[in-house]
Design a protein around this nucleic acid. Structure first.
Lengths: 231, 231
DNA sequence: GGCCTGATGTTTGCGCTGTCAACATCCCCT
DNA sequence: AGGGGATGTTGACAGCGCAAACATCAGGCC
């Protein structure tokens, strides 16, 4: 039985296959019915094979969250490189954050939901989470140093900004997931337009509007309003 | 066996007992290991008795979320009655919202997490969710009518405000739940002070700071800053 | 080449879970 | 008084997480 069937004894890349299957499964049927056995079945492997790669169910979810934080870190980094003025950079980081959440809702939920009760057993996850946060913080620091943002302890400003983008992200995801749950017109104001050219139009406005509370410089504020189409 | 043991055949108030046991269990051990059988055991009742009150597991979680929205509705209502100016009312509603989330994290997570994949089978839940949202919206409408908030479609303003308080609430809850997960000093800026007199001090500042982006009237903005201790 | 060690996948088994169906008990209304 | 609906019980079944013991493979060492 070495070559007749293309199933080798060893799968080859089971770990990644399981993670991808998990995302697909959660997207399709929610997080409730997710079972390692089902993932194993989908990967064409014995029911307990996943335990060679993940100590338990939580560990698999933690791996998903870790991937998410690393991807978010990259996305934030990509938004910053442009070298624009700090207020614009903060804006772009916020928009990118929301866009990442919108396009990876499953991982985003692992990162910030409460399925992973405790991060402490997962060192890689803790590091990835802290890393992505620090990257956002550095952008805020520049804005503070340039006097464009209202004076405020960096940690507090970081918390406020994070809360802002996290809240918008949560609603964008909710808008996609259960349009039935809340009044339609509210979600419409925040749901990304489906037309290709204006994806994320409303989330951009949300980020800009709430960011305005943090901006000190009137010119920067006006520029932000113009860029986001608020005026 | 009618009176010797104090266990009657009928429990009396099993439904509410199960809901309370569920909250306790989730608070203690997270949402993962929650089982109807364990709840039944804790209530001193047979393993399948819960099915007389909840069609299935999801229905129990939905009932928790419904309770949550109704309580949130009351809390928002209580914040509004004062008859203060609209900007202050919006501020108080926001602070109350965050405070509700902080003190009822389990229900809050049922309301906005993704454990309940789809609200549509649960009519009561949908109505409760919409009701609490409408109450917040009415306060915003008054602020708009008075010209104290920047002109903006009501639905969009509602979405922005909701995103703001939802984001802050999420971080406050995270701060309580897994202090290990993220850099300590960020959480400290948002975590309610434990000293009795200053509970919610930092969340108040967060609400005020982000709200400032929505306020049009400069006097109202200054008053808001002063009230929240930003100046 | 031949072997040995560690990584990966399999089999078997246990106790727990969600859910269904059939049955028992009790409360309330007529 | 007694019948019907609400509530709780018992028994059964498949599926799950997880632990051991076992099988198969790959790559380095002689």
């Amino acid at each position: 039985m070495s070559c007749a069937e293309h199933r080798a004894y060893h799968h080859g890349d089971l770990r990644q296959t399981l993670l991808e299957a998990a995302v697909r499964h959660i997207r399709a049927e929610g997080t409730e019915g997710l079972s390692l056995r089902a993932l194993a079945r989908e990967a064409g492997v014995s029911p307990t094979a996943p335990y060679r790669h993940f100590e338990n169910r939580q560990a698999l979810l933690a791996a998903l969250a870790t991937e998410g934080f690393r991807e978010l870190d990259e996305v934030i980094g990509a938004a910053v490189v442009a070298g624009a003025d700090p207020v614009t950079q903060v804006f772009l980081v916020g928009v990118s954050y929301v866009e990442y959440a919108r396009t990876h809702p499953v991982k985003y939920h692992m990162m910030f939901g409460d399925l992973i009760g405790d991060f402490s057993p997962f060192a890689e996850l803790r590091e990835a989470a802290e890393g992505s946060y620090r990257k956002m913080e550095r952008v805020l620091e520049a804005g503070l140093a340039a006097g464009l943002l209202k004076p405020c302890p960096l940690a507090e400003l970081g918390g406020n900004t994070w809360a802002m983008v996290h809240g918008i992200a949560g609603l964008v995801i909710a808008a996609q997931r259960r349009s039935e749950a809340f009044p339609g017109e509210i979600l419409d104001t925040i749901r990304p337009m489906q037309a290709q050219h204006r994806v994320l139009e409303a989330p951009e406005r949300a980020v800009a509007r709430l960011m305005l509370g943090l901006v000190a410089d009137p010119d920067a504020a006006r520029a932000l309003e113009r860029r986001a189409g608020l005026t």
